[in-house]
Amino acid sequence: MANVEKISVALTPEMAMTMRRAVESGEYASASEVMREAMREWQLRRAEREQALAQLGNLWDEGIASGDATDGEAAFARIKHSLDTKIGNGGSL
């Protein structure tokens, strides 16, 4: 494999055994292949987390920009009153 950097990684005995079993079973060709896949998965999770945080930040900003908060109980009371009035006047939902 061209353009690679060798590094040393310390693993718990359980992690090392899991890696060895994956290689011995033929699921992976080498411990390096296991580590490369683990790094790809880690990078993907980090990117997904960053995207989720950005989306949450956007939703927060939208909420702040939407104006003052409304009391939930009061809002539901207004909706119920509106529906009761509509139904009481022979309206349909």
Rank of each mutant, 00 (worst) to 15 (best):
5 E>K: 08
38 A>I: 07
73 E>W: 05
57 G>T: 12
31 A>D: 06
65 A>Y: 01
9 V>K: 07
19 M>I: 06
15 M>F: 06
39 M>C: 15
54 A>K: 07
13 P>L: 03
62 E>F: 07
81 H>F: 11
90 G>N: 01
26 G>Q: 01
23 V>A: 05
72 G>S: 02
38 A>M: 10
32 S>A: 09
18 T>P: 05
86 K>E: 05
13 P>D: 08
84 D>M: 10
2 A>I: 13
66 S>R: 13
12 T>E: 01
44 L>H: 06
40 R>L: 11
3 N>A: 14
57 G>S: 14
92 S>E: 13
6 K>Y: 09
47 A>T: 11
64 I>C: 11
7 I>E: 09
86 K>S: 05
41 E>P: 01
52 A>S: 12
88 G>I: 06
24 E>Y: 12
28 Y>H: 12
14 E>Y: 02
10 A>R: 15
61 D>W: 02
82 S>F: 02
61 D>K: 15
93 L>M: 10
6 K>H: 09
29 A>T: 11
13 P>T: 00
46 R>T: 07
29 A>C: 08
1 M>L: 03
43 Q>Y: 02
33 E>L: 11
42 W>V: 01
26 G>W: 03
78 R>W: 08
68 D>A: 11
20 R>D: 15
63 G>N: 13
58 N>Y: 06
66 S>I: 03
79 I>E: 08
26 G>Y: 04
57 G>H: 05
55 Q>C: 03
87 I>S: 15
31 A>T: 05
91 G>R: 02
6 K>R: 14
55 Q>F: 04
51 Q>T: 03
39 M>I: 13
15 M>S: 13
35 M>W: 00
74 A>S: 04
15 M>A: 14
16 A>S: 12
81 H>R: 15
42 W>P: 01
91 G>Y: 00
29 A>P: 06
70 T>E: 07
49 R>W: 03
24 E>T: 13
54 A>Y: 09
62 E>Y: 03
86 K>V: 04
20 R>V: 07
65 A>P: 10
6 K>V: 14
8 S>K: 13
37 E>T: 05
67 G>Y: 12
79 I>M: 11
18 T>H: 15
3 N>H: 12
14 E>S: 05
25 S>V: 01
62 E>M: 12
64 I>H: 08
79 I>P: 03
51 Q>W: 05
48 E>T: 03
33 E>R: 10
69 A>P: 07
59 L>C: 07
3 N>K: 15
61 D>S: 06
16 A>Y: 12
87 I>T: 12
45 R>M: 09
48 E>R: 08
31 A>V: 04
55 Q>L: 14
88 G>F: 06
64 I>L: 08
35 M>T: 01
32 S>W: 02
51 Q>H: 10
48 E>H: 04
20 R>A: 13
11 L>T: 10
51 Q>I: 09
76 F>V: 06
12 T>R: 07
69 A>E: 01
37 E>F: 07
59 L>T: 11
12 T>C: 00
55 Q>D: 13
73 E>A: 06
68 D>E: 14
67 G>W: 11
64 I>D: 04
50 E>R: 08
